[in-house]
C-alpha cells in the first residue's frame, strides 16, 4: 500500500496470491474476496489480518491431545471431570467436535491431524503415531477407542494403531458402523448395507 491507502498493483497481486492458499479458492474467488475486503469492508480486513497474525503466534498443539490450543495443555485435557482412562482417537479437530456434540463420551482425545495414506506417502510419523503410543501407554489409559473415518485410509490407520496397542497390552476398540440412526434401508447406500450385513451382531 502507498500512503493514501490505495493498494499498489503489487500489493493487490500479493493479496490474491495469498488468498489462494485457502482450500477451494481459485483465482476468481480470490479476486472477489480481495476486492470485497479492500473496497467494502476495510475494518473486516483489519480484523482478519489481526486474527490471522494472533492465531499464528498464539495457537499451538496441545501436548496431550495434539488438538489446537493456546495453552501448553488444552482445557479439555485439564478438565477433572473427564475420564482419563478412555482415549478416543480421531483424525481431525472437526471429528473431535462432532464426537463432543454427541455428549455421549466423557473420556479424553487424541487428534491425529490426518490419517495414514500409503498412496500419498503419509506414514505413521506424519500423523503422530509415535506420540499417540507414548500417550496410550502412560498407565492411565485403559482403553483406546478408534474413531478414524470409515475410508480405506481410516481403516488402515485404525488397524495399525490397534496392532501396536495389542503388542503393548492396551485394549483397543473400534466405533461401530452401519445403517444410520433413523435410516430406512431403502434409502441407504448399498455399500453401507453390505457392510452392515457383514458386521451384523447376534441379539
Amino acid at each position: 500500500m502507498d500512503k493514501s491507502g490505495v493498494p499498489t498493483a503489487r500489493g493487490l497481486d500479493r493479496l490474491l496470491e495469498a488468498l489462494r492458499v485457502l482450500p477451494g479458492v481459485g483465482p476468481r474467488s480470490a479476486q472477489r474476496m480481495a476486492y470485497h475486503l479492500l473496497q467494502h469492508d476495510r475494518a473486516g480486513a483489519e480484523q482478519l489480518a489481526g486474527a490471522l497474525a494472533a492465531a499464528l503466534a498464539g495457537v499451538r498443539r496441545c501436548a496431550r491431545c495434539n488438538n489446537f490450543t493456546e495453552d501448553e495443555i488444552c482445557p479439555l485435557c485439564r478438565s477433572p471431570r473427564r475420564d482419563a482412562s478412555l482415549l478416543c482417537v480421531v483424525e481431525t479437530p472437526a471429528d473431535l467436535a462432532t464426537v463432543e456434540q454427541t455428549q455421549s463420551f466423557s473420556g479424553m482425545y487424541f487428534v491425529l491431524m490426518g490419517r495414514l495414506s500409503p498412496l500419498d506417502g503419509v506414514g505413521p510419523r506424519d500423523v503422530g503415531l509415535d506420540r499417540l503410543l507414548e500417550r496410550a501407554t502412560d498407565g492411565v489409559v485403559q482403553e483406546v477407542i478408534l474413531a478414524t473415518n470409515f475410508t480405506n485410509e481410516g481403516e488402515a490407520t485404525a488397524h495399525y494403531i490397534a496392532e501396536m496397542l495389542r503388542a503393548r497390552n492396551v485394549k483397543a476398540s473400534r466405533i461401530a458402523r452401519g445403517v444410520p440412526l433413523g435410516g430406512e434401508l431403502e434409502f441407504v447406500d448399498i455399500g453401507t448395507i453390505s457392510q452392515a450385513m457383514i458386521d451384523r451382531r447376534t441379539l
Binding site: E155, A156, H159, I190, I198
Partner: peptide, 26 residues
C-alpha cells in the same frame, strides 16, 4: 457409480497389499 459385487473389505496387511497393487498400477 454403482456397486457391482460385494467383496469382504480388505483389512490389516491385506489392505496394505491392496494399496501396493494400486500404487503399482498408478
Amino acid at each position: 457409480a454403482e456397486w457391482a459385487a460385494a467383496l469382504q473389505p480388505l483389512a490389516g496387511l491385506a489392505l496394505m497389499c491392496g494399496f501396493y497393487l494400486n500404487e503399482l498400477i498408478l
